[in-house]
C-alpha cells in the first residue's frame, strides 16, 4: 500500500506523499475533501492531491461511500476532458487518504471570472470549443454509466446543485437518467454566453418559477401531465410563454455583453433546455448537431493559451 510521509508547513500540519516534497498552494475545499496543488518529485509535474474527508461515522461505516463512489467512477473514466485519478495513497493513519489527480489551473467558473478579458464575452469559436469538450466528456460518462444501469430503480432527487438541477428533479421525479446532466449542460451553455448563471433560484420553488419564466410553463405536454397527475398535484402554475429567444439574442452583435449566438447555437441551447426530458437532446446527438459542423471553427479560449 503506497504510504505518505508526514510533513509540516508553516500554516497547518498536513500529510503529503513521499514523492511530493511540498505543497504549492491550497486550491479548494469541496464537499468531499480539501484539494492541494503539489509537485511530483519524480516527474516534476504539477498534480492536485485531494484529501478525502472522513466524518465521525467512520467507525460505523468505514471508508465513506460517497468518496468510494467518486474514486470508482473516476478510475473507470478515461477521457481528455475529464480529470483522471493517478493513484491513491494513505497517510500515517487510516483516515488520511489522498487521491492524486491531474491538476488544472482553474475550473470553468474561475476561468470566466479571472481569465484575460474577463469583462468581455467569449468569442463564439471559444464557446463552441468549450461546449464540445463538455459534451464529449458527458457522452463518455454516459457510455460508462450505462454499464451500471439498472431497470426501474428509484433514486433520490437531491442531486445536482440547485441552479443546474433539471425541472423534473424539482418535481420529485425519481426515475431519471443522463438527461438531467444534459439539462445542466444547457445551463452551462447559457452561462458561457452571458458569463453569468442563467437560473439563480434562491430555493426549490423559486428555481421552478425561474425555469418556467425562462422557458415557459409546460402546457399540453404529455410528460408533465403524467408527472403531475402521478403526484396528485393540484397546484396550478402561472402560464408563461418562453422568454428564451428574448434572453439569448440570435445573430446579434449588440453591446449586451452576450457572446455571438448563431441560429444553430440557439437551436442547440433550446434542445438542451427542453422541459420534457424525453425530448431533451442527448450528449451524443448534441455533438452531431449542426452547431458544431457549420459556422465558425472552434478555437481554444484565451484563458487556456
Amino acid at each position: 500500500m503506497p504510504k505518505a510521509d508526514r510533513w509540516s508547513s508553516d500554516e497547518e500540519e498536513i500529510v503529503l506523499l513521499s514523492l511530493l516534497p511540498k505543497p504549492i498552494s491550497h486550491l479548494d475545499e469541496g464537499t468531499y475533501g480539501v484539494v492541494w496543488k503539489a509537485r511530483d518529485n519524480a516527474t516534476q509535474e504539477i498534480v492536485a492531491i485531494k484529501q478525502i474527508k472522513f466524518d465521525s461515522d467512520m467507525t460505523k461505516e468505514g471508508f465513506p461511500i460517497s468518496a468510494l463512489r467518486e474514486i470508482g467512477v473516476l478510475l473507470s473514466l478515461s477521457h481528455e476532458s475529464i480529470v483522471s485519478v493517478r493513484e491513491m495513497v494513505v497517510g500515517s493513519t487510516p483516515d488520511k487518504v489522498f487521491m492524486v489527480m491531474d491538476c488544472f489551473e482553474m475550473d470553468l467558473q474561475a476561468a470566466m471570472k479571472k481569465g484575460p478579458g474577463a469583462s468581455t464575452p467569449f468569442a463564439q469559436s471559444e464557446v463552441k470549443y468549450m461546449m464540445r469538450q463538455i459534451l464529449s466528456a458527458m457522452a463518455h460518462v454516459t457510455s460508462i454509466a450505462r454499464k451500471y444501469e439498472h431497470p426501474a430503480r428509484n433514486m433520490t432527487q437531491m442531486v445536482v446543485t440547485l441552479w443546474y438541477r433539471a425541472p423534473e428533479l424539482l418535481f420529485s421525479e425519481s426515475c431519471y437518467g443522463p438527461e438531467i446532466d444534459t439539462w445542466s449542460i444547457g445551463c452551462i451553455f447559457g452561462e458561457l454566453l452571458i458569463k453569468e448563471a442563467i437560473l439563480k433560484g434562491t430555493g426549490e420553488l423559486d428555481q421552478i418559477q425561474k425555469i418556467f419564466k425562462l422557458l415557459g410553463t409546460p402546457t399540453d405536454d404529455e410528460y408533465w401531465e403524467q408527472l403531475w397527475s402521478k403526484q396528485g398535484s393540484t397546484f396550478k402554475w402561472k402560464n408563461n410563454d418562453s422568454d428564451l429567444a428574448r434572453t439569448f439574442a440570435v445573430n446579434s452583435f449588440s453591446a449586451t455583453g452576450q457572446s455571438y449566438l448563431s441560429p444553430d447555437g440557439f437551436d442547440l441551447l433550446s434542445r438542451l433546455l427542453s422541459l420534457n426530458p424525453k425530448k431533451r437532446i442527448t450528449a451524443e446527438d448534441a455533438l452531431r448537431h449542426s452547431y458544431f459542423s457549420c459556422g465558425v471553427t472552434e478555437q481554444v479560449p484565451m484563458f487556456y493559451v
Binding site: M58, T59, F63, G72, M88, V90
Partner: peptide, 15 residues
C-alpha cells in the same frame, strides 16, 4: 475497518 483499507488497495480500487 482495517481489512477494508487493505482490500481497497489489494483490489487497486477497482470496485
Amino acid at each position: 475497518l482495517d481489512m477494508e483499507m487493505n482490500m481497497l488497495y489489494g483490489l487497486d480500487w477497482k470496485v
